Each structure stands twice: as C-alpha cells, then as structure tokens.
Simulated scan of single mutants.
Amino acid sequence: MDSLVGMKIDIEMLKSVLGQSLKVGTVAKLDADKGYRIALGEDDDGDEFLSPWMPHPETSKSSVPLEEGQTVGIIAPSGDLSQGVLIRGGYSKGKESPNSDLAANVFKDAGVTVTVKSGALRIETNGVTVVISGSGFAVEGGGVTHNGVNIGDDHKHTDVVAGPDLTGPPQG
C-alpha cells in the first residue's frame, strides 16, 4: 500500500512539473538590459502574474527585439521559470504577420520591408523600392547618388556637345 501511495505522489509531482514546463503568454515588460517579463495570467488577487525577467531569445548574429503584446512561450523543464528559456510564439491579434505569401521571407520593422522571394531581394521604405535580382539592380522612387554625385534619371552631364560626341561624367 505504501508503494501505491508513493507512486500516486510521484505522478502528482510529475503532473505539476509537466504543467509548469511550458507556459505561453504575452510580452508585458521590456528592458534592454534585463530582457522581458511575460504576462502568464492573474494571481489570486486578480493582478497580472508576470514571469521573472527572461533574457533576449536571440543569437549573436541577429537582433530582432520582441514587442509588447507579442505571444511567446517559456520552456522550463524543471518547472522553475527562472531557469526557463524564452521562445518566440506565433502571430496574434494586433501582432499579425507582415506576410501573406508563403513562398516569401519577409522582415518588416521601423518603416522598412525586406522581402526575399524567387532569387530576388526587395527593400521598400518611404516610397523608395530597391530590387536586386538576376535581371539586375532597379530603383524606383527617390534619388540615386554614387559618391555624392546624382546619377538618377534627372542628373545632368558636363561637357555636352551637340552631335555624335559623348558627354562628360555626371555633374557633381
């Protein structure tokens, strides 16, 4: 009988740890040095229950900070959230995907959209679009300069002579 009670206690402990091993919530607080605190529901008084500070879920190769309200998960195999790992979650209301084309990789932040699709790179910002592809390099909107000299569609040339002669370089 004692072994049956012991097994029941073990099962209850395992259920408790398993229940604590993965938590899903939204980013509630952000701090450049500390990381993020995640809203995981409410406590017994009805106040927001926040995780401990979790470090940024990033590598040394990139930095794409989480935003307040973004869905995330915490994996804590021991059940101790302070020893957990923060993982990015899916999209949610108010934090929709910037992309409806599943054949494209899209990054959108700070007024810039970068799209990679079918061997082409497209960068869009403030009415200017740059496309690099197998067809070449194209710029739409805005001006184009090289080493501070206008080489756009409205540039002027020096040493213009009527007839078949070539012009001089673009005017600086």
Rank of each mutant, 00 (worst) to 15 (best):
E67R: 00
G119I: 05
I87T: 11
V72D: 07
L86P: 03
V114Q: 06
L121M: 12
P65E: 05
Q70A: 10
P98G: 06
V116I: 14
P98Y: 07
V72S: 04
F107P: 05
H56R: 03
E68W: 02
T113C: 02
A110G: 09
P77F: 15
D101G: 01
K117D: 08
G79K: 02
F107T: 15
T115Q: 06
P55M: 05
V106M: 01
G94D: 12
F107N: 10
A103W: 07
V64H: 13
I75S: 13
T71Q: 15
L81Y: 04
S51Y: 09
H56Y: 08
G79S: 04
D47K: 11
K61V: 12
E96R: 05
D43T: 06
S63D: 12
I87K: 01
Q83H: 14
G94M: 09
T113N: 03
D109S: 12
G84R: 03
E68D: 04
K117H: 09
D80Q: 14
G90Y: 07
L81D: 00
V72T: 04
V72I: 10
G69T: 06
V112F: 08
K117P: 02
D80E: 14
D101W: 09
V106I: 08
S82K: 10
D45G: 06
D44T: 14
E48L: 11
K61F: 15
V85C: 13
S82H: 07
L86H: 01
H56K: 12
E96I: 10
G46K: 05
M54I: 07
D47E: 15
S100T: 15
S63I: 08
R88A: 07
A103S: 14
P77R: 08
A103L: 14
S118G: 12
V114S: 06
V116S: 05
K93H: 11
D80P: 01
P77T: 09
L102R: 11
G94N: 10
G69S: 09
W53S: 04
D101F: 00
G119N: 08
V112H: 05
P65L: 07
E48R: 11
G89V: 05
L102P: 00
G119W: 02
R88K: 11
S92Q: 09
W53I: 00
G94I: 10
G90F: 09
T71L: 14
W53D: 02
A110T: 11
V116F: 10
S60T: 14
G46S: 09
A76T: 06
D47P: 01
V85K: 14
A110D: 12
V116E: 08
P77S: 15
